[in-house]
Design a protein around this nucleic acid. Structure first.
Length: 574
RNA sequence: CGGAGCGUAGCUCAGCUUGGUAGAGCACUUGCUUUGGGAGCAAGACGUCGCAGGUUCAAAUCCUGUCGCUCCGACCA
């Protein structure tokens, strides 16, 4: 390829609306351009990298026995209504109106993901255990009406995703499929030159029995991952469980709860400062509407609710109750709420955090404005319907084995779920087993954000001058900087030799000063730079230089191609 | 959806307070010089000042509305 023929609009200055390094670099290096919020065009160089990443993904999917399909982006609304998460997914789906739509609802939705489509397909075509297992994958554009697209490709409204779906006869077989995908993912990210960690994760709206996230630790990440210092424990914040800072639990039951006036204490902090009740001795009472029913969530005063864990209780939809709803159900305003002696007819469930189990001598709201109760014993006075992990882990707390944890931000590049039968039940994906009995197919699903992964590589691998692409997904492995017009035939010959050896190279044939070419090559970050100029020829050939190293190597012109190939091959083997 | 900020040339930004003929640097075109880390000189081209209304003799500038973008938060399969 000739530089002069391609559209490579590098920018000397960063566009003002790009905040993070990788976003700025993708724009400055001329890899992508924004069309609208959350919608990006890939320019020739950006597309080359994207395609290389997709190729890696395809190779690993195929190696793991998955087969590729291409599914529509246009989904009938009826299909989603038939599925198990229509209500929950509705807010993020773009609707597409057809001319023939007559009702208020549109007939079509733009697919945010494809479990419904693939399960419907499989339900219609797989009838026998002999046809299982099967794993399908697709790499294509998905649409999500993100409330707040940001950071370029990191969270876009239109984005490329690889999704795979496994279908198995039994739960054990499904676990095997899951493991295959899990291992394929590790290979994919390793080949893409990405350092990532795998953590236990929450299944969220997707549902299912367990899942793992592939996370790239990075300060601008939007996920939080809990790591233990001894390296034994890693988990998504939505899943993490740690031991709380201990409180001193009285050894014997309290006397009966005692009401006391707290006219100006509406918060945990005010109760601590005005009435000397440590936060850890308080019960925080949060009112939520879960699947339209009133639910109380109880936490220790010094703990924070982790909303994802509310979903893990089995609720599909949940939100904090409004003040009106709270007064109607409890008769008091936020700041004086408690679960003692509440009218259970108005309250569907009371869920308490694990760290409240068997706690004695707690203080909580009296459900009467301006009053609290002390000497509250969980088992005697509140009797929650369940104890579950509800709180957010905090840095410095200990794992079960006693190692302190820290919390780091990370970019979620992949997520694998063992789904179970949530979708196959809804779509009637059944098969006949060996004994002729009808069974439900067991599923798993496995996603990779392709554009996000590409950007994560840039975020993880750059310096002040630009990107440092791994050989595997660089737009071109080598850039030949032709510094003198007169050397055009030498440059092209070198390019052709490299091509013949399987190394893709771009020739910077522009009529630009050397400095411009060096700067642009560094900015885009081609792994290997080949400098060809009168000066280098006089010195004995061409200069070869790794993007990530300072020193260059002088190589005779006729050995240049072979040497570049060696370098590239060595890097790929690592 | 709450909070904050920004929309002026392809990019970075000034001008707005105090209304009076649209600016700079970079990029682009042409010429000359230069040529190993974002060259110099000269000449040139490039704008419905986000959009709509209003005030005014006169609006990039003041007022109202609206749209878009960015950041923080909430949300996130």
């Amino acid at each position: 390829m000739l530089w002069s023929e391609l559209l490579i609009p590098t920018l000397r200055e960063a566009p003002a609306d790009a905040e993070i390094a990788s976003h700025r670099l993708l724009l400055r290096a001329g890899l992508v351009r924004k069309l609208a919020g959350g919608a990006y065009s890939f320019l020739p160089l950006g597309l080359r990298s994207l395609r290389k990443l997709e190729t890696i993904i395809r190779e690993e999917m195929n190696r793991a026995g998955a087969q590729e399909v291409l599914l529509p982006a246009l989904h009938p609304r009826e299909l989603w209504k038939k599925g198990p998460r229509y209500e929950a997914a509705l807010p993020v789906m773009f609707a597409a109106r057809s001319r023939t739509d007559t009702t208020a609802d549109t007939e079509f939705l733009l697919g945010p993901t494809h479990e419904e489509v693939i399960t419907e397909l499989v339900a219609g075509h797989i009838n026998s255990y002999r046809q299982l297992p099967k794993t399908f994958y697709q790499i294509q554009t998905k649409f999500r009406d993100e409330i707040r697209p940001r950071f370029g490709l990191m969270r876009a409204r239109e984005f490329s995703m690889k999704d795979a779906y496994s279908f198995d006869a039994t739960d054990d077989a499904a676990k095997l499929s899951y493991e295959k995908m899990y291992n394929a993912y590790k290979r994919i990210f390793a080949r893409a030159g990405l350092r990532c960690v795998v953590v236990e994760a929450d299944t969220g709206v997707m549902g299912g029995s367990f899942s793992h996230e592939f996370q790239v630790p990075c300060t601008i990440g939007e996920s939080e991952v809990v790591f233990s210092d001894d390296g034994q424990y890693m988990a998504a914040i939505e899943k993490a469980r740690t031991q709380p800072v201990p409180r001193t639990n009285p050894s014997s039951p309290s006397p009966a709860p005692e009401k006391f006036a707290t006219p100006t204490a509406k918060t945990i902090e005010e109760l601590t400062s005005q009435h000397s009740v440590p936060a850890c001795d308080q019960i925080k009472t949060l009112a939520y509407l879960c699947d339209s029913r009133f639910v109380l969530l109880l936490l220790r005063g010094d703990h924070q609710l982790c909303e994802a864990k509310v979903g893990a209780l089995g609720y599909q939809e949940y939100r904090p109750a409004t003040e009106e709803e709270i007064v109607a159900a409890l008769g008091a305003h936020p700041g004086s709420l408690g679960a003692c002696g509440v009218d259970r007819k108005k309250i569907f469930k009371i869920h308490a955090d694990l760290d409240l189990q068997e706690q004695l001598g707690m203080t909580t709201g009296a459900n009467e404005d301006g009053f609290h109760l002390r000497q509250v014993d969980m088992g005697r006075d509140i009797r929650p319907d369940s104890y579950a992990s509800l709180r957010t882990a905090q840095a410095g707390e200990l794992t079960e084995t006693g190692s302190p944890v820290r919390i780091e931000r990370a970019i979620e590049v992949g997520h694998v779920f063992k789904l179970g039968t949530k979708y196959s039940d809804a779509f009637g994906a059944k098969y006949l087993d060996e004994s002729g009995k009808s069974q439900t197919v067991v599923m798993g699903c496995y996603g990779i954000g392709v554009g996000r992964t590409l950007q994560a590589v840039v975020e993880q691998s750059h310096d002040d001058n630009g990107i440092l692409w791994p050989v595997a997904i660089a737009p071109f492995t080598a850039a030949i900087l032709q510094l003198d017009k007169s050397l055009s035939s030498e440059a092209l010959k070198l390019r052709d030799e490299l091509t013949a050896l399987g190394v893709d190279a771009i020739v910077d044939d522009r009529d630009e000063r050397p400095g411009v070419k060096f700067k642009d090559a560094d900015l885009i970050g081609f792994p290997i730079r080949v400098t060809l100029g009168e000066k280098s020829l006089k010195a004995g050939g061409v200069e070869l230089k790794w993007r990530h190293q300072k020193e260059s190597t002088l190589v005779p012109l006729d050995q240049a191609a072979a040497t570049v190939r060696q370098w590239a091959a060595a890097a790929s083997d690592q």
